[in-house]
């Protein structure tokens, strides 16, 4: 994909193995959760124990999802610089500047994005929102789960009044799922776009961990 780059490229190791593994665990589990979840909301095929299976798969996948999210959040504080929470929160001056620049780029007001190699600041900020959505999914999911649970998780029933009951939780669970799916669409488009535009190996990086920049042009955020 990067073969057509004319200038010689330099390789940067950006995504460590924890980032990559949690990314894919989360991404795949969301797909499974959304598929089973939509079925739970709108069972369309009758058959042997279909709803039962959908729920079982949903709940086991929810465990994978929750653990992966939890691991990634811990890693934000323990892991190397590129995985840090600082990449998400536009706290520093320069990340604000780059954020504005990126927005301009996406609004077609600027042809080139600022040259970063970690998350670009807009992506970083949107990932922050995505982590918020993960939290909503987990909280609403646990609240619904607590209804039929008879272990310590039953304690999550206290969440119900805050969420306007099971129906409120259910509604939020659905709405947030759609936000996540919308993010996914945007996310993949941006990854492909950036990968093509910058010819930096963006798309592959989340598999391999490496990104590329032209030699002699170190990233601004290095």
């Amino acid at each position: 994909m990067v073969a057509e780059a004319q200038a010689p490229l330099e390789r940067y190791y950006v995504w460590d193995v924890v980032v990559r593994v949690t990314h894919w665990a989360i991404a795949l589990s969301i797909w499974l959760l959304a598929a089973t979840g939509i079925y739970i909301g709108h069972p369309f095929l009758a058959g042997a124990f279909t709803m039962g299976w959908a729920k079982v798969i949903h709940f086991y996948t929810a465990i994978v999802f929750t653990l992966a999210v939890f691991a990634r959040v811990v890693w934000m504080f323990l892991g190397p610089r590129r995985s840090s929470w600082r990449n998400f929160v536009p706290a520093s001056k320069r990340r604000w500047r780059d954020l504005v620049a990126t927005i301009k780029f996406y609004l077609l007001l600027r042809l080139e994005p600022p040259r970063t190699i970690g998350h670009n600041p807009l992506a970083g900020a949107s990932y922050l929102a995505v982590f918020g959505m993960y939290a909503v999914m987990i909280v609403t999911g646990l609240a619904m789960y607590s209804v039929s649970d008879y272990t310590w998780l039953r304690g999550c029933q206290v969440l119900l009044p805050v969420l306007h009951g099971v129906q409120g939780a259910r509604w939020l669970h659905h709405a947030t799922m759609w936000l996540l799916l919308m993010f996914f669409v945007a996310h993949v488009f941006f990854s492909m776009l950036t990968s093509r535009n910058e010819k930096n190996g963006e798309l592959d990086s989340i598999f391999s961990g490496y990104k590329f920049l032209p030699k002699g042009q170190p990233p601004d955020d290095e």
Partner: peptide, 9 residues
């Protein structure tokens, strides 16, 4: 919500 969500996506 699902119809709105699907259209928005």
């Amino acid at each position: 919500i699902d119809r709105v969500g699907a259209w928005a996506t």
